[in-house]
Design a protein around this nucleic acid. Structure first.
Lengths: 190, 190
DNA sequence: GTCTATAAAGCGATAGAC
DNA sequence: GTCTATCGCTTTATAGAC
């Protein structure tokens, strides 16, 4: 049986939890060390760039997860309706029905964005492009697909903010349902 | 001519800027001292509770601003349509058309929420209640008013996240326009 | 690859002179 | 009310033994 943390990538999930809970500047190496079970020596061995490199690795991991599990199928599937439904399922699962926050969105709201701006842009641009592509293939006009994709991603992010603000995950669940209802009934043209 | 910072409340705007830019744990007393022009001695004279009391004062100030300039008229005005339009104008002005983030929302996304949970809840509950009240008086059914109010606040918060993530304030401007269009054309019943 | 020790700087907060 | 000096602690990061 392999050790729990034998290589760099094994530490990523725990790192993500720490950054999600405390933010970037609120995450100390002591907390990171405790939560990953790795001493400072090991942490700097795996991440010579220190905390910054750890956060970069987490952001890359988040984006890769979405690329592989969500975005890729949205860009080329023959069944865009099913793919969009799958996106909502994946989003609901990933964010634990509103109990979990979006690390990328949280990093964007203060000067942490200055450190990781390229990765933050990349995540949201990839999501926007993939969803726009899928919407177009369900019959949305070019312009309406782009606007609806933006609307959906905006609402998901806002629902995460409001759900955590009010300590009411139902806000998130209601929002996802509302969005799905809307794209099912809305006129798809301009 | 009075001095720029002669009493506690004069420091609040600068404090707000620092917390908005760096987050709570990322804001050091050195930075706060520099940006407010107050030495540590003065800061602790005005805010004996230290950084926590400073952030509480800023959150209270934000909520008071919204109470006085936005929420109060929404709760009792005879002209709810105009009041809702005014809300969007005030929101657009306050958040500088998407260039400024929401301090309350940003605090909510990590463990900073644990320190200020009551104030964060209060802000969003007051906003939700005021907007729901105004929507009901424009003819929305009880249930639809509550859901639409939640939708609008969710979208505003999400637009702030996405605008800053993509460094594109147009996301925010487009979202406000879209929301106003929607409440003007949507059926108001259940 | 993991540990301990340690450096050097920064942190929040306090004390006391003025 | 504002200042400087300082306390005690934590921070990130490195060095070197194992």
């Amino acid at each position: 049986m392999p050790r729990e943390i034998a290589e760099r990538r094994d530490a990523i999930p725990a790192l993500g939890e720490v950054f999600r809970e405390h933010g970037f500047s609120g995450s100390s190496l002591a907390e990171i060390s405790q939560h990953t079970g790795l001493g400072k020596g090991s942490l700097y061995h795996f991440f010579p760039g220190g905390k910054t490199e750890m956060a970069e690795a987490v952001l890359d991991d988040v984006t890769n997860w979405f690329e592989e599990n969500v975005f890729s199928t949205m860009l080329d599937s023959k069944h865009p309706e099913g793919v969009i439904r799958s996106m909502f399922e994946a989003v609901n699962c990933y964010f634990r029905s509103g109990e979990r926050t979006c690390l990328v969105g949280a990093f964007a709201l203060n000067d942490t964005r200055d450190r990781f701006g390229d990765r933050i842009s990349k995540y949201f641009n990839a999501w926007t492009d993939a969803l726009t592509s899928a919407l177009k293939r369900t019959g949305f006009s070019e312009k309406n697909a782009a606007e609806t994709a933006e609307d959906i991603i905006v609402s998901i992010q806002g629902a995460l903010v409001l759900a955590r603000s009010k300590q009411d995950a139902e806000v998130f669940i209601r929002t996802l349902k509302r969005l799905q209802r809307r794209i099912a009934t809305e006129p798809h043209g301009v």
